[in-house]
C-alpha cells in the first residue's frame, strides 16, 4: 500500500470545485491568445505585403494595383 498516492488522491478530490473555475479562466485566456494570434496571422502578412509594395521600386506593380482599383470601382458603379 502506498499512502503517498492515496494522500494525493484525497487532495485531488478536494480540488474539484476550484478546478472547474480555473479551467474556465484558462479557457478564456486561451481564447484571447487564439484571437490575437488569428489577428496577427491575418493582418501582419497583409501589412508585410503592403510594406513590401511601398518600398519596392517596381512601377509595374504600382500600375497593376491601379488597374485593380479601377476594376473594383467600375464594378461597384455598375
Amino acid at each position: 500500500m502506498n499512502n503517498f498516492k492515496e494522500l494525493e488522491r484525497q487532495q485531488s478530490e478536494a480540488f474539484d470545485n476550484a478546478g472547474n473555475k480555473i479551467k474556465k479562466k484558462l479557457n478564456n485566456d486561451i481564447s484571447v491568445f487564439s484571437f490575437f494570434g488569428s489577428v496577427i496571422d491575418l493582418y501582419f502578412s497583409r501589412m508585410f505585403n503592403v510594406m513590401a509594395d511601398l518600398t519596392s521600386n517596381d512601377p509595374s506593380a504600382e500600375s497593376n494595383k491601379d488597374d485593380d482599383d479601377n476594376i473594383d470601382i467600375n464594378a461597384l458603379l455598375k
Binding site: L7, Q11, S12, A14, F15, A18, G19, L26, I30
Partner: peptide, 15 residues
C-alpha cells in the same frame, strides 16, 4: 488541452 487539464490538475494541486 482540456483533457490534459482533467488528467493533471488534481495532481498538480495536490503537489
Amino acid at each position: 488541452f482540456d483533457k490534459l487539464y482533467d488528467r493533471y490538475s488534481g495532481k498538480i494541486y495536490a503537489k
